[in-house]
Design a protein around this nucleic acid. Structure first.
Length: 506
DNA sequence: TTAGGGTTAG
């Protein structure tokens, strides 16, 4: 095993004998270098098993290095076993374990270890808070770490700890607190700026994200591919094609490699901004098409109504050796839904567990219900909702209610509304829909009853709105909005478009 | 040994 891993000057013959070897680690580079060369966990464990037989390698420093290696392979159980062998773990060893827990969604274990570290009288260093805050991601009890950082004068102005703190607030959606921290930071770099932009984007505050990106550019801060992924996501969701195109040109100019995540973001941006042809073009240029890239492309085709093409790409990705994931099935099922492919959708849903070992979740069932609803199969959709293996949520009942509005099906609409009044009691859209269904069937008493509920529960009706970007400015319109300076021309054009559509549909 | 990224059902 070690022979395979050792290369050049570092050969197996350099292994220390198991006894009487008390030279310091630094004089024995082979073992650590051999471990570094391991590309798979199994290799690493085998190499470790060989080396650990020597007394030298039971030193805390060495074991800490082992933990670091194993944490890199995400085997936290093995890492913990090694950690527990250390009689006097150093701050480095604690840091490494906390980092491992934090990056593997085992935050509470990381926090627990930090407490143990302090009980042992160890002082945190500049790495501890970033790792600990990562472990606290999404956990409100992590707010206590904020005061720890503030009190620790060594790090209360230190960029890594503060950026981690900012990201921690973003992790449970408190972008307001994150922004306060950001504004007060003595130093900011590309990571800090990207972190706050990503925070806004995750909260769907796309305009704020773009605004900060503009500020970042004006401040002359370096921009990298991580920044651009968030900016592309914001422009995609705003339909801000010009910003997205600027990013694309920047990528080309700076010769930034289209890694799978950046490539997927670019495809998604073009697809959401209406340019499926450009999305396809970008798709063709990405050298390593990971599952993200395929998902973005299939999702783009789905939203443009190219169901059969989406399914072809789904098959092609498998021929290319890429395993579909949960998201792939969501976008493929959504392709079936937008193209009326009922049987295909059913077949794909059934194949998830059977052929791919992926258990369908509520989103997959949601897509299938949508397939049935859009095909007008409302009774079948209702049957799926009440018989699926998990508790239906508001999205499922909302899908059915929407479909009932299109078909004026009062009976099923009432069944859906009954649940929605519990699940989403303040969603004005649902009340509007049921009221419209009653109106369409001339049930005026029921229309009045719904209006009274809206009034009694003080539910305000939230008007729909749409966004469009022209010449780098995003314009927002509400229903019946007349505030825009070009309102008259816009409505004039809208009427013309409506006439054209009517002519087409005749 | 540090901090930041995407896609996903009404």
């Amino acid at each position: 095993m070690l022979e395979i891993l050792a290369s050049g000057n570092h050969h197996i013959t350099h292994l220390p004998s198991p006894s009487n070897d008390s030279k310091p680690i630094s004089n024995k580079p082979n073992h650590l270098q051999i471990l570094k060369k391991c590309t798979h966990l199994i290799q690493f464990k085998q190499a470790h098993a060989q080396i650990i037989k020597t007394p030298l390698h039971q030193s805390d420093t060495y074991l800490s290095k082992i933990i670091e290696g194993v944490v890199g392979f995400s085997d936290l159980i093995y890492a913990r076993q090694v950690f527990d062998q250390i009689t006097e773990p150093s701050t480095f060893a604690f840091n490494t374990m906390i980092r491992g827990y934090g990056t593997n969604d085992l935050g509470p274990e990381g926090i627990d270890l930090y407490i143990r570290m302090r009980h042992r009288g160890l002082i945190p260093d500049n790495f501890t808070y970033p790792f600990l805050l990562k472990a606290c991601s999404g956990l409100k009890q992590g707010k206590g770490v904020h005061s720890l950082v503030v009190k620790d004068k060594r790090f209360s102005s230190e960029i890594h700890s503060l950026t981690s703190l900012m990201t921690f607030y973003c992790s449970f959606g408190d972008v307001g607190s994150a922004r306060l921290l950001f504004d007060r930071m003595p130093q900011r770099n590309v990571v800090t700026w990207t972190g706050i932009i990503a925070g806004y984007v995750k909260q769907k505050r796309y305009k704020d994200g773009i605004e900060l990106f503009n500020q970042m550019k004006n401040n002359g801060v370096e921009i990298n591919e991580l920044t651009l992924v968030s900016v592309l996501s914001a422009s995609a969701n705003l339909g801000a094609l010009e910003i997205g195109q600027w990013v694309h040109e920047y990528i080309d100019q700076k010769r930034i490699l289209l890694n799978p995540k950046l490539g997927a973001a670019l495809i998604d941006m073009y697809a959401k901004c209406g340019h499926i042809d450009k999305a396809y073009q970008v798709f063709g240029t990405i050298p390593c098409k990971g599952v993200y890239v395929w998902n973005a492309m299939i999702g783009g085709l789905a939203m443009h109504g190219y169901g059969n093409e989406a399914i072809e790409r789904f098959q092609e990705m498998q021929q290319n050796g890429i395993m579909p994931d949960r998201v792939t099935f969501i976008v493929v099922l959504s392709a079936c839904s937008h193209s009326g492919l009922v049987e295909k959708g059913k077949e794909i849903l059934l194949s998830m567990r059977k052929d791919f070992g992926i258990e369908p979740n509520i989103k997959h069932y949601g897509c299938f219900v949508d397939i049935l609803c859009r095909a007008g199969l409302l009774n079948e959709a209702y049957e799926v909702i009440i018989n699926m293996p998990m508790e239906p949520n508001a999205v499922l009942w909302g899908t059915l209610l929407n479909a009932c509005a299109a078909a004026a099906n009062v009976e099923l609409a009432e069944a859906a509304m009954q649940r929605l009044m519990v699940l989403e009691p303040f969603n004005d859209g649902n009340y509007v829909l049921i009221s419209n269904i009653y109106a369409a069937t001339e049930r005026w008493n029921d229309v009045g009853r719904v209006r009274k509920i809206l009034k009694d529960r003080k539910i305000s009706r939230n008007p729909g709105h749409s966004l469009i970007q022209v010449d780098n400015v995003v314009h927002e319109f509400m229903v019946g909005d007349g505030r825009h300076p070009c309102s008259e021309q816009i409505y004039g054009m809208l009427e013309k478009v409506a006439i054209i559509i009517k002519e087409w549909s005749l």
